[in-house]
């Protein structure tokens, strides 16, 4: 059932340029890492898709980059306010991997803390624009951090099962290096459940809905 749940905001922390928004979990299923939720935004028409960053027994955390009116409003939510959430949605990462390596870039590290927990803290390689952005690396255990102009693809150790999330150019570069990687993509979405056709991306020469087919896709 596609049912929105009203959850209470527990609080938020500033993490470099980002905000970690924490909500009380209630009975919400956190889903599989890489799946996402649609977060209602106060004063805006459309919800925003966010992957789950952290899941404890009592709270869910979303790492948000305040880049527009919707994400800024989400970052401004105060403890005690109510937020309606739909999810988990889409397809997450396959967790049946032998030698996992997490690869993230910028705000694309958002799903990696929860993924790391579910895979018992495997090694991770994270890339950021600045040391300020890299403060978010503290959320991911066992992480090697690189800053521009160094890219994650320059320091990827061979022989791993790569699970990656980040900007499209990073994912394209990772895909060229590791054809068996699992890649979590991003696209603007109005609904998150296949209704709006807004999040279409080209997959194998066809435009497909990322919310239904993804957001995690096999690289090959």
């Amino acid at each position: 059932m596609l049912t929105r749940r009203a959850l209470r905001v527990a609080g938020s922390e500033v993490v470099g340029p980002y905000t970690l928004l924490r909500v009380e979990r209630g009975k919400l299923d956190p889903g599989i890492p890489g799946q996402f939720f649609m977060l209602e935004v106060p004063g805006r028409l459309l919800p925003r898709p966010m992957s789950l960053c952290l899941a404890t027994s009592s709270e869910l955390g979303f790492l948000i980059d305040p880049i527009g009116p919707g994400t800024r409003a989400l970052c401004s939510l105060a403890a005690g306010e109510t937020l309606r959430i739909l999810g988990p949605l889409g397809n997450g990462f396959r967790l049946d991997v032998e030698r996992p390596l997490l690869v993230g870039g910028g705000i694309g590290i958002a799903p990696l803390p929860y993924l790391s927990e579910r895979l018992a803290n495997p090694p991770a390689v994270l890339g950021f624009r600045t040391a300020w952005h890299a403060e978010a690396a503290a959320l991911v255990p066992n992480a090697e951090v690189v800053l521009e102009p160094t890219y994650v693809t320059e320091v990827l150790p061979p022989g791993h099962d790569v699970l990656a999330c980040g900007p499209a150019p990073m994912l394209e570069a990772v895909r060229r290096l590791t054809p068996n990687a699992q890649l979590a993509w991003e696209a603007p979405m109005a609904c998150g459940y296949g209704a709006c056709y807004g999040c279409a991306v080209e997959i194998d020469g066809e435009l497909k809905r990322l919310c239904v087919e993804g957001p995690v896709l096999a690289a090959a």
Binding site: L45, P188, M189, E206
Partner: peptide, 11 residues
Amino acid sequence: GGNDPVRIAET
């Protein structure tokens, strides 16, 4: 296939 992305925007 439809138009190229980006295909939606909020005002």
